[in-house]
Amino acid sequence: MVTTTLPLSDVLVALPARIDTVAAEERAAALAKRSIKKESKLFALDLAIRCMDLTTLEGADTPGKVHSICLKAMHPAPNDPAIPSVAAVCVYPSMVSHAKEVLKGSGVHVASVATSFPSGQSFRDIKIREVEEAQRAGADEIDMVIDRGAFLSGRLDEVYEEIVQVKEACGSAHLKVILETAELGSYDNIRKASLIALAAGADFIKTSTGKLTQAATLPITLVMLEAIRDYAWKTGIRAGMKPAGGIKTAKQAIQYLVLLNETLGSEWLTPAMFRLGASSLLNDVLMQIEKERTGSYFAAEYFSEA
């Protein structure tokens, strides 16, 4: 496969953003009806944990809270060695060093939101600086937000350039680009923003900050997965996908994995190519695993809070 980067204008011309809303939503709804049972359900639940970015993004976050969530991330079910660690812990930049310390040697990554998360409404140099600091503090992954103001006023080049600069500032850290899809107004725009992020060098594209009531949905994720696929076909560059926000149940997680499986294929079924951003999903997944193993329905109190 030939790998080539293309100028933004070429990408937008070659991969036009035209989505039929009803048909896209119907396709996503149809995939959500897949019936995932038995061993394939266990596979999916295990994968959901391995792909999870366990997230805490509160104004009230403290080193103590971050410590607790990091322990949960490394050992979601301390008594059960068969349960894997999650992929990463996602925190604010100020919490990166605390998280890094707890997670050292565990293989669990530290992801930091950045670029004046969640609004992105600040000065470019401050945003860049924030990324650099987060990276220096030990972030393995940076979750930036795009400049929706620039996007919605048609300054696509600015959106693109900012991502390019952030990517540069990331150094060795992986870059996830949050589109905040709920603010983009249409699937066409979501596809367009996806392509801008991809062309600018995003390692992942991500749906949402989780700070708005409308966050990830299956059709939005489908549209973004199709952008990733089309970009990969065009350039050979394969990016990852991270739906985030509102994913609270194991059933939802499985639906996202089915969507991924049937849109991009099995090569994306790995934490290197897929993440689920979630703060309250983990215990439901654990509960469902127990259900599959024992055949009985469980109660939340049997699983530890982060």
Binding site: S35, K37, K38, L47, W233, V258, S266, L269
Partner: peptide, 16 residues
Amino acid sequence: STHQEAPFEVFGYAPA
């Protein structure tokens, strides 16, 4: 075509 083969080997859905 740059698309991979049928994706079901890894995440094959158990009969339902």
